[in-house]
Every structure is written in C-alpha cells, then in structure tokens.
Design a protein around this nucleic acid. Structure first.
Length: 420
RNA sequence: CGGAGUGUGGUGUAACGGCUAACAUGUCUGCUUUGGGAGCAGAUGACUCCGGGUUCGAAUCCCGGCACUCCGACCA
C-alpha cells in the first residue's frame, strides 16, 4: 500500500482526553479514532492489526470448534429465560419501534454482552443425541458491555471485539477433557501473538457459575487492572480475588511467598456445567434412550484488548512496536528521493517488485522530508524499514533497520532482489 | 454507581469579570530546503460543551445537565 493513499495522518500530540499509552499511540499513529469513552473506530492500519490478531485466534480455534456468527442484537426473552436479564448490570438493554418506555425492565431487546443465551438454543436444535456430542461453536464478534467506567483505551471498552467459544458435552468428564485441551489452544494463541512468556494461567473466582474456580489468562502488564500472585516456577498464578486463607488451605499454596504483579486479563475460560442447559431445558438422549443434562463450557479471548496490551508491552518512546505476527505491514519502504528522480524510480521499482512477490509492504512515497518519514515510521511501528536514498543507492545498497532493536544493516540491491 | 478534576479553532495550550478570544501545531498558496517532524511570507480555521442565572459587561462567577479523565466499587 502507498502511504500517500492512506487516508489517516499521524499527529505529534495525542488528544488531551487520552491518557493510556495504548490509546495515545494508536490515536497519534492513526490506527484508531475514539467515538466516545470505551468505543473506538478501527482505521485502516488498526483494522489490519485487529484482523491479524483475529486470524491467529481463528486458526487455533478452527482446530477445536466450528466458526459461526451470532447476532449482536437479540430479544430480551432469552435473557429473561436464564434470569440474567435483571442481574447482569453491564447488559445493554434497548427498545424497538413504538416503545416509549426507557425503564430497563421494559426493554424488549438486548445488545449482547456474551452469547450463552443465543448459542444454547441453537446447539439444542441440532445436537439432541449422544452421537452429536461433544460439539463446539465459536465466533469472533463485537460485544457490548455497559461498563460503568470504561477506561485505559482499548483495555476496557463498552464496545469491543471478542472471540467466544462454547462447548457442549455429555458429562462432566468429557467437558473437563475438552476444557484442558482448550487451555492448550489458548496458550498457543498467546505464544503466536508474542505474549507466551508473560501470559499465565490464573485461578480466578467462578463468578456467577457453580464452579470453584475459573481460569484466566493473565498477561503481565503495568497498565492491567488485575493483581495476580505469580508462581513462576510452576507457571501458574492466582487472581487477588481468590487469595484468601481458605483457598490457601484448599490449594495448599502459601500466597505470601508468591510474586505480586499487575496483569491484564486477555482470556478467560469457564466450566458452565449445566447452568444454561437447565435454563433452556436442553437435554440429550443417551444410549439407553434416557434424557441427560448437557454440560457446557465457555471460552473467551478479547482481540481488541489484546491489541491494547501488545501496544502497552512493546511500544517505546518513539512509538508503536509490533510483533511480526500482527504488524499491519511487515516492511515499511521509505523513499528518500527529494528531487533525485533516479532514487524515486529505484524505490518505485523495489516497491513494485515487493508487491509482485506478495510482500506485505507500506511504501512511503510521500513528498515530505526525511525527518518526517523517520518519525512517522517509528510511530507506526512496522517491524522492518527499508530505506532507499541517494546515499544508499550510490553504494548499490538499501538500508534495513529493525524497529524493535534499532539494528541497521546494509543490503545490496541485488541481494534484496534475489531474496524477494 | 460513589468521590475528585476538566470542558476554548482539527490537535495542544493561553487569556484579572472589560479592546476584534491569543499562541503553537495542522491545513491551503508561494518560496526555500532535502538523512530525524527544518525555515520564510501569506491565507484558512472557534456561537469558548448545552440550558438557565448574576452583572452595565461572562470563556471567566453561580445553578442544572451532558461529556471526558483519574481514584474506588463493579467486571457474569
């Protein structure tokens, strides 16, 4: 893509109302635009990153489930059926045509904050036999949560992207087996996103559900909202909310001996057991013809929050720094031509060859000074920078600079062409 | 949802209750410059968040609302 065609521009200063590092840099670099607190538009660069994160997740989830797309909007009835219509305070309730009441209890519709209420009846329709189980569905979609306090840029939004997977099983053992397997898939996702070393399975409260603990995936991050007690040696952590004398005894863990670190929850998995199948009266027929309750699990990852976490962890003073797996482009080609037509022509040719070879490249073909191109390139944070200038061309070279390390190497144009 | 703070050109800031709301940046013209957001000249751009009130006079003081940010609560 040509940078002259990119419709966003970079800014020297972040808007005063953005305090979080991720929001400041993503806004300055033109990746996102804030619509209101906790609600962002994803602009071309930001959308490319988001899609890449989602694609990594999709590839891993395809190994353990079937992708679907569920509606963001649903009827209030299904939420009333599980009793969560009145109890979930982040639920966004809304009304339809001809409805005047704004009382939340009168709302006919819901902007979904999670999809157990939607997927359970769907699964029920097609999976009524033991032969159909286990089965798992997932989606990557926009969720709504009416957070009382949206904050920290992409880290806690009122509208955000989420991958949610739901699994259905004939009994608790089968659920457990799948659940443990899902844990491994999650670890693979975070590893591929470059967060493997700093992401830990963390015991957290079972929340609303009938379980002792749920499992969170917490990434060490100063900007995170959670405090975890980390046992690095055993690669496990405990959310502060479960650090109690009773749990110390139950788990046989001395919490005081553990390292306390701030972290951000990037994933969460719950054994739901029969909570939702009971609400919808979802049973399956076993081998003997008897009706049995279906056991469920749910598994979430927040792609847009991950984007924020990755910015928080890798960015430096000069701007964003993307891991290759999710960078908006792999190569940032800068043409420092000035009025040297030969340099411009050479840069143009290299660009065309890169594109023809399928390389993922952003070409700064703008007629601006070198300093501005460097500053923008640092800010945008593409992993590799290729610089074509009078200086480098005179030696038949292209300068290659790594964004993350600042390491510079000179590569001959012939070698570069060969490697393309 | 409790507490605190802040709302001024696209962006960042300034302005004692008193002149035509100032400066920087951005954007547009022209010149100049060309390896780290360079320089010169000109132009463009604001019902000072909304609604009331006090006052001869309000960006400024008061009341109400809304929005944003931070701390806390919450986060199935």
């Amino acid at each position: 893509m040509r940078q002259s065609q990119l419709f966003t521009k970079t800014r020297k200063e972040a808007p005063a109302d953005e305090v979080a590092k991720n929001a400041q840099l993503l806004t300055r670099a033109g990746y996102v635009h804030k619509e209101m607190a906790g609600v962002y538009s994803f602009l071309p660069l930001g959308l490319r990153v988001l899609k890449k994160i989602e694609q990594v997740i999709r590839e891993e989830m395809d190994k353990i489930g079937n992708e679907v797309l569920l509606p963001a909007l649903s009827s209030a009835d299904v939420w009333k059926q599980t009793g969560r219509f009145d109890t979930v305070d982040v639920l966004m309730r809304t009304v339809g045509a001809n409805e005047l009441s704004l009382a939340k209890s009168d709302a006919s519709y819901v902007l979904n904050s999670t999809h157990e209420e939607i997927i359970t009846p769907i699964a029920q329709e097609s999976n009524g036999s033991y032969k159909d189980l286990p089965v798992a569905y997932y989606q990557i979609q926009t969720k709504f949560r009416n957070e009382a306090r949206a904050k920290s840029g992409l880290l806690r939004g009122r509208e955000f992207r989420m991958k949610d997977l739901y699994s259905f099983h004939r009994d608790e053992n089968d659920l457990k087996e799948y659940y443990n397997n899902a844990k491994l898939s999650y670890q693979e996702v975070f590893k591929r996103l470059g967060l493997g070393e700093d992401t830990f399975i963390t015991l957290a409260s079972g929340g609303d559900f009938t379980t002792d603990f749920s499992h969170e995936f917490q990434t060490i991050c100063e900007a995170g909202e959670d405090l975890i007690y980390l046992d690095r040696k055993n690669k496990i952590a405990y959310n502060k909310e479960v650090v109690t004398p009773e749990n110390a005894e139950k788990l046989g863990v001395d919490f005081d001996s553990l390292e306390q670190v701030k972290a951000c929850e990037v994933g969460n998995i719950f054994p739901l057991n029969t909570k939702f199948s009971k609400a919808f009266d979802y049973t399956y027929t076993d081998e003997s013809g008897a009706q049995q309750p279906v056991f469920m699990g749910c598994y979430g990852i927040g792609p847009s929050r991950l984007m924020g976490v990755i910015v928080e962890k890798f960015a430096d003073e000069a701007g964003l720094v993307w891991p290759e797996a999710i960078a908006p482009f792999q190569i940032h080609l800068l043409s420092l031509a000035g009025d040297n037509a030969e340099v411009a022509k050479e840069a143009e040719e290299i660009y065309k060859e890169l594109v023809a070879s399928g390389a993922d490249v952003l070409f700064d073909d703008r007629d601006v000074r070198a300093g501005e191109k460097f500053a923008d390139s640092d800010l945008i944070g593409i992993p590799k920078r290729f610089i074509v200038s009078e200086k480098s061309l005179a030696q038949g070279m292209v300068e290659v600079k790594e964004r993350a390390t600042g390491k510079v190497t000179m590569v001959s144009i012939t070698d570069l062409r060969d490697s393309i």
